[in-house]
Each structure stands twice: as C-alpha cells, then as structure tokens.
Amino acid sequence: MEDLSTPITVNVAARPDALHILRVVAASAAALLELPFDAVDEVRIAVDEAGVLLLDSSPEADALQLEITTSDGSLLITIGTDVPAAEWPRPVDRESWSWTVIRGLTLDPRFVSGDDGRPAIRFRTRPPVKAP
C-alpha cells in the first residue's frame, strides 16, 4: 500500500460534465491504496454525488476543487466550490438524495466550510479489507 506524500488537488469547471474528471482522479487515488474494485467504485459514486450536491447548492460557482489526502490507509476526500455560500449546508442539502447516498457509502461524511465560508463536503473512504 502506498500513501500519498503530497495531497492531490484538482480544479475543474463547476459543470456536470466536468465531474467525470473528479471521479477518475479519485478512483486513481483509491487504486494507489490498493482498494478493491467495489470500494473504488463507491469512491467514484460518492465523489459524483458530492459534486452534484455542490453544483445544485452553488449555481454561481465557477470551479469545483477536489483534494485528496490519505489517513490511516483510507482516503480523506474534500470537494468544495470557489464561491462562499450565505448558508451551508441548507436544510435542503442535508435532506438531499446525494447526501443520503454519501452517508451510506463513506465514513465521517460532513459539510465543511473552507476559506471565506466556501462550501465543501468531506468524507473518508472505507478502510481496505485485507486480502485473505
């Protein structure tokens, strides 16, 4: 297993068709950790849902930022926008389908606020199950 000595940071346009870049980057990071296929698959889904939630919540955002670090053999993934939000999360964000899915697929999912109150979502991936 490898650890990421330097965090991975990627910026993409805040558009649905840019989400696949974030999915692929997150999947690549998960592959570095030798996570099994199903865990990698779910990292992709969770990243996608976080992106969708942020795009819905921040229509005025120009960019989405993905940051990935490692901690204890799992990935710590943060996805945020570049524009501060007046309210984050809104009740509708907490009740969203995306959030429900993220909560189901990840560990410690949380809404966080970055610099200047920029909305972000952070979660950890499930730790890898050791191959028997």
């Binding site: 999947a27 998960a30 592959a31 030798e34 996570l35 099994p36 296929f37 199903d38 865990a39 990698v40 199950v129 191959a131 028997p132």
Partner: peptide, 16 residues
C-alpha cells in the same frame, strides 16, 4: 477479468 478474478479470489480484486 473482474468476473474471473472475483471467482478465483473470492473477493473484490484491486485495480492493479
């Protein structure tokens, strides 16, 4: 490949 490995290993294979 995934199907084959999954059968052979009895677990989800890694990407590598």
């Amino acid at each position: 490949t995934l199907e084959t490995l999954w059968q052979d290993l009895g677990r989800s294979p890694t990407i590598s």
